[in-house]
């Protein structure tokens, strides 16, 4: 059984986009990459919207299926536990806040039985409730309790979508780095879109990951 990479965080922190990008990155080097879209809270802007992109890359998408994929009922895909017990690499994307991470609590004993897991707290300091250390500390506690797993690191995702500038990224990342310090968690990655990659990679080195936004509607 290979590793599991899990992304959790507050609503709208960028988890789904980051999980998608991570799965696509892993699929370049590995076979049997699975993306588990366990956003059971609501179906707006979920990984299952881009199923064809994943299939083209050879990634198996595990998500609420059929008409449940348009629903807001907590339907956990039936095959998930079986897949967690098999040889593969799995990326898990859950919905925001503790309600979103609760599904991990149900799966945690299977996740803990694998070779190892990475459990990332995704932070965008430009989102409400992610601007103060205390509220991020509370979020971390709630998520770990709901998931029955301990975070292994932070993914820093500072952005204002279309109004992001290099300065926004730098200042936001500094804020995340300060929070990470007081939470005693390492910053595993800084995620930025293409236009900021060269500058940020030069400044922050190998932790910088370029991400493409797949879930943003074309008409925005």
């Amino acid at each position: 059984m290979g590793k599991v990479v899990i992304f959790a965080g507050g609503f709208g922190s960028g988890k789904s986009e980051i999980a998608l990008n991570q799965a696509l990155l892993l699929a370049r080097d590995f076979e049997d990459v699975i993306l588990a879209d366990l956003d059971l809270v609501n179906p707006y802007f979920a990984s299952r919207d881009v199923r064809p992109i994943l299939e083209d890359a050879g990634i198996r998408l595990v998500a609420p299926s059929g008409e449940l994929s348009f629903g807001d009922v907590p339907s956990i895909p039936g095959e998930i536990i079986g897949l967690l017990r098999q040889e593969n690499i799995m990326v898990i994307d859950v919905a925001g806040d503790e309600v979103g991470s609760a599904v991990l609590g149900y799966l945690s004993k299977y996740i803990l039985a694998r070779q190892g897991y990475e459990f990332f707290l995704v932070l965008n300091p430009y989102r409400p409730f992610a601007q103060e250390v205390q509220s991020v500390r509370d979020l971390r506690m709630q998520l770990e309790k709901a998931a029955n797993l301990e975070f292994t690191g932070i993914v820093s995702n500072p952005n204002l979508l279309g109004e992001t500038t290099a300065d926004i990224v730098r200042r936001g990342h500094q804020q995340v780095a300060d929070m990470a310090m007081s939470l005693s968690l390492p910053v595993a990655n800084l995620t930025v879109t293409k236009e900021f990659y060269p500058e940020m990679a030069a400044k922050f080195g190998g932790q910088v990951r370029e991400i493409n936004l797949y879930l943003k509607p074309q008409w925005l």
Binding site: Y126, R127, P128, Q131, R171
Partner: peptide
């Protein structure tokens, strides 16, 4: 921590904040 000028919000959050 000082409040940043712009903030990234969902429509529902922005409505509530308004």
């Amino acid at each position: 921590m000082k409040q940043m000028e712009k903030i990234l919000m969902k429509g529902n959050e922005a409505l509530a904040e308004g």
